[in-house]
Simulated scan of single mutants.
Amino acid sequence: MSEALVLQSDFGKCDGAVSAMYGVAQSVNKSIRIFDLTHDIPPFNIWEASYRLLQTVSYWPEKTVFVSVVDPGVGSDRRSIAIKTASDQYVITPDNGTLIHIKRNIGIAEARIIDESVNRLPQSGESHTFHGRDIYAYTGARLASNLISFEDVGPEVPVESVAELPIADAKIAGRVISGTIDVLDVRFGNVWTNIPSQLFKMLAVNYGETVQVTLKHKNQVICSRRMVYGRSFADCSVGEAVVYINSLEHIGIALNQKSFAQAYDIGTGSDWGIVIEKITSH
């Protein structure tokens, strides 16, 4: 029995790219089980691809194979890589920073460069712009189908050599926590930060109390306002802001039944900062 193959990309589904990846996997093994993580990563947004893997990978069974293709450097000398996570799943992807959140939060047990001389769709050697189909989906399907072992993917390389993106840890100083905006809860416009719940709890803020929240882009203040700390969105009135612990047990910010990201034109990444300050009574 094959393992699950989970696909992620920035291709969208308006053309045949995703279907072609499915077709390649089916040509390897007609009984393979294929699932979509998402194909709506914003074009070329490596950071978001990295975070969506973090959001998903550890909830899948051991040996699940993920193929993530957000590849603005396709056809260049960037490496094609496969990694085994510390929780025993596999990810096949361009080595362009897509693995930074897994590397820092889950851990990489082993990394291998894909040997394209054997792990490439037959008769696809003239194309250099669709590695998602010709290399990643093909290799991922073979690995998930147990037609190759992880060792057969290619030569091992040091985990330390896996490419990274700039990333910072959340910090606390007195009654102030600073962090970054990692990703958006896209459909609802909630803002997800890199501030873990345990760090936030060090402020000793109780449910129903308010904190001062400031959002910055490249040190320019975008929004600064008081927000209630609640268990869920319903702990404030419709349209009001709430600070809450999201499904990954990090701090999130939302407007009840409205989009916070749209209201303030919020983006994501290491140059989007957040500061949360406990309000002391006088």
Rank of each mutant, 00 (worst) to 15 (best):
V183Y: 12
C14I: 06
V70I: 10
S149C: 09
V24G: 01
T280P: 08
S237T: 07
E160T: 13
N206D: 11
R226Q: 12
L203K: 04
I253P: 01
E62G: 01
I113P: 04
V70E: 00
D36Y: 09
K63P: 01
Y136I: 04
F233D: 10
V91H: 01
G75A: 11
V183E: 10
S178F: 04
P166C: 11
A17L: 13
I92N: 06
C223L: 14
P158E: 10
N219S: 13
I177N: 03
I92R: 05
T193Y: 03
F200T: 00
F130G: 05
D40G: 13
G132W: 01
G140F: 05
R52P: 10
F44R: 05
G230N: 05
E3N: 15
L54F: 10
T268C: 15
I135Y: 08
F188V: 11
F66K: 05
D40R: 14
V18R: 04
P122H: 00
S127A: 08
I106R: 02
S161F: 06
E116A: 07
R142S: 06
P158W: 09
E160G: 07
K13D: 15
P122N: 07
E48P: 02
F66P: 02
L7I: 04
A173K: 12
K216D: 03
S247L: 08
V118T: 15
S237Y: 11
V221H: 02
E62K: 15
I32H: 02
D40A: 09
I92C: 05
P94E: 12
V153N: 02
S124M: 08
C236K: 12
G75F: 11
W272A: 09
S232W: 03
N190E: 04
S80K: 14
Y22H: 15
A17V: 12
W60A: 12
G230Y: 04
D152Q: 10
R79Q: 12
E277T: 11
G174R: 10
M21T: 01
G125P: 00
R133K: 07
A254S: 15
N96P: 04
D15W: 04
I102P: 07
S124T: 13
P43C: 01
A163V: 13
S259G: 07
T64L: 15
A4S: 10
E164N: 04
P158L: 06
D182N: 15
I195L: 06
S27A: 14
L99F: 09
A4P: 06
V28R: 00
Y264V: 07
D134E: 13
G16D: 06
G12D: 07
A168M: 12
G132I: 12
C236T: 15
S50V: 11
T93C: 02
E164V: 05
D36Q: 14
Q55K: 13
C236V: 15
C223R: 11
N105S: 14
A111N: 08
I108L: 12
H131D: 13
E249K: 13
T98N: 10
V243R: 01
F11E: 00
V176Y: 00
A263D: 13
L184I: 10
S270H: 10
L215T: 02
I266D: 08
M21Y: 00
N206M: 10
R226D: 15
E110W: 06
V65E: 04
P155K: 14
S197R: 14
A168G: 09
W272K: 05
Q262H: 14
H282V: 02
G230C: 08
N119C: 06
R52A: 15
V159A: 11
G252M: 10
T56P: 02
V221N: 04
